[in-house]
Design a protein around this nucleic acid. Structure first.
Lengths: 346, 346
DNA sequence: TTGAAAGCGATACCAC
DNA sequence: GTGGTATCGCTTTCAA
């Protein structure tokens, strides 16, 4: 089975003219007569001619495509980011290639190797939660491949970055719980070592400081983002509820953590928000229909994707080296629903 | 900013040997002496040499990559399919390129044009809901590009296909409602003209026939799958509830329809399942934590992706033309929860 | 054991 | 206005 597409040489032979004439006619060069253009164009259209992208890429050293490296496509937030990236990239004539790391450092390195070496003109990346050493990215940068970080960024590298205001988001969510008279606020969050985890933890701590409340370290739980984290999260919930001084609220900082926590609490028949308030992070449309409707922090994924793509394409198109980099911080939105509201003051 | 990667010619010059020698050494040819191989390999490794994929693709007319065309990445079901495809493709050394149609026929045609013409070795596609004319796909096939359909398939073309048993899934879901003594079962489903819509409708009808119950045509609502279908779905719910003889159950056949219907019912303060039972289609992990836990049909997305990728790669690798095609039908799973259970017989 | 040359598809410079 | 030819990076005969 062989897929043979029509080439410029095919057209040239068929019309008994030279390949270079065909090429010029196709690109509407001023050198070619209207008549010839007409003939070539008609033939090309009829035979559904499309230039071979590999030949173009080889010739120009540019592929008109950008790579995206994300932890997982299953995460709604990242899916929304991809949509945002595509909306910008397609408009500029760029194709997008997506690679998933599934939160593995090795997969991240491998994916990037696959994507690079001229197969892409630029790279957009949100690091895996396992990644500590980023020499593989520094290397790319030093070879001149434009790279833009989004969401999970590293301070070890200087380039354009787009993040959400994780500190503010966590601060607002926690403060909202304080406002509703919760004082014993547990936090179930992602793995340590990730920029977003640190910022969210800082927001949580800042809210406690603002409210002159001491932080109970046993209320803070870190969970991985891997596929098998359901057990981790479930036992975190159990541990919290077995504490002598049980928390009266839980703040969860990812879609998976949120849904898993809700499921655990459901199974334990714990009433929300009467027995326990919950505030989550989620980009899922189900937040409004869970029991009870969930107060949650919404991250502007689509916008983040757009911004990141714009920055990357500006780098790709820039002829001279860029030395001034910017970090865009997008606000998060706290959507208040019923899972965190207590009508009776304690 | 220019990303210049190291090439075979660079290595040849640096080591003062010819390019062809380098090429052969790199591919461990028997023609090359162990000593030369050693030198070349070491130099290549040190300088992080990677062959230019565009040159390879141009040379061999094969790109070791496959294209995936899906309606939307935001849909959890399709995200799971992609994971399944990748798990197989990566193992075989293939890269995956994803294109979204956002349910638009024009986007589908454009995406496919982008992907094809030697940029990919094969194509996996789930059609947009707008697509009727599939001449753009037939053309590819006739040119010899291997194509495998999944989920949303067309009978107008003969090739490998992977589908879920939509008929059985809808039959079981509807029969389950009958078993729980619901008789006035509404159906909110996707647009007409889609294979999956037809099969699901047939299952729904078959259940009615089995139970010797007449079908009320006003209970059947078709909605689009586009971005702005929330209003459509919402008004479908309202129309159903304004019927003189209101339905006592609703069967929804997609993730978006399900979450939107639940939200509408929530706003209208309708008790599930007391006033109205709901059975949905969903691949979201939130199904278990909505109010009340949702009985739903789960589609084996990951498996579907794996099967489709296996079929495609078998076509890609086959040297002779394949004329015998198969259609794999995967069973669906009905997960029974509380949204469809009535304790009191009427 | 090594190297020179052709070719994959498209473009651009230079002749004519 | 048109056509020949070199070029992008790599592989593969074929000659040395």
């Amino acid at each position: 089975m062989n897929f043979k597409a029509i080439t410029i040489t095919d057209i040239a032979k068929a019309l008994n003219i030279s390949a270079s004439t065909v090429s010029k006619a196709l690109s509407d060069s001023y050198e070619i007569s209207a008549k010839t253009k007409q003939i070539v164009l008609t033939y090309a259209r009829e035979h559904n001619y499309r230039p071979n992208p590999n030949a173009i890429s080889l010739k120009f050293g540019s592929s008109l495509s950008i790579g995206i490296v994300i932890p997982s496509i299953q995460n709604q937030f990242f899916a929304q980011i991809i949509d945002g990236i595509e909306s910008v990239a397609h408009q500029e004539g760029f194709t997008v290639i997506i690679a998933q790391t599934h939160e593995s450092y090795d997969m991240e390195v491998k994916s990037i190797q696959q994507l690079t070496h001229r197969a892409i003109d630029g790279l957009l990346i949100s690091q895996s939660s396992e990644t500590r050493d980023i020499s593989h990215l520094k290397q790319l940068r030093s070879k001149g491949l434009p790279v833009v970080f989004f969401d999970r960024v590293s301070e070890q590298i200087e380039t354009h970055k787009v993040v959400t205001d994780n500190f503010q988001g966590a601060l607002n969510a926690t403060q909202h719980l304080f406002n509703n008279h919760y004082r014993k606020i547990a936090l179930i969050t992602g793995p340590e070592g990730l920029s977003i985890t640190k910022d969210r933890l800082d927001g949580y701590l800042q809210a406690h400081a603002q409210n002159k409340t001491e932080v109970t370290t046993s209320y803070i739980k870190h969970c991985s983002y891997t596929n098998n984290n359901v057990e981790e999260i479930t036992s975190a919930v159990h541990e919290l509820l077995e504490l002598p001084d049980k928390p009266d609220a839980i703040f969860t900082t990812s879609d998976t953590i949120t849904s898993t926590v809700l499921l655990s609490l459901n199974k334990l028949d714990i009433k929300i928000p009467e027995q326990l308030a919950v505030v989550g992070f989620t980009n899922s449309s189900f937040a409004a229909v869970v029991d009870p409707p969930l107060t949650s922090v919404f991250q502007p994924g689509f916008l983040m994707g757009q911004k990141a793509a714009e920055l990357l394409l500006s780098l790709v198109k820039s002829k001279k080296a860029v030395t001034e980099f910017e970090t865009i911080v997008l606000p998060m939105q706290l959507v208040i629903r019923e899972s965190s509201y207590r009508s009776v003051k304690l």
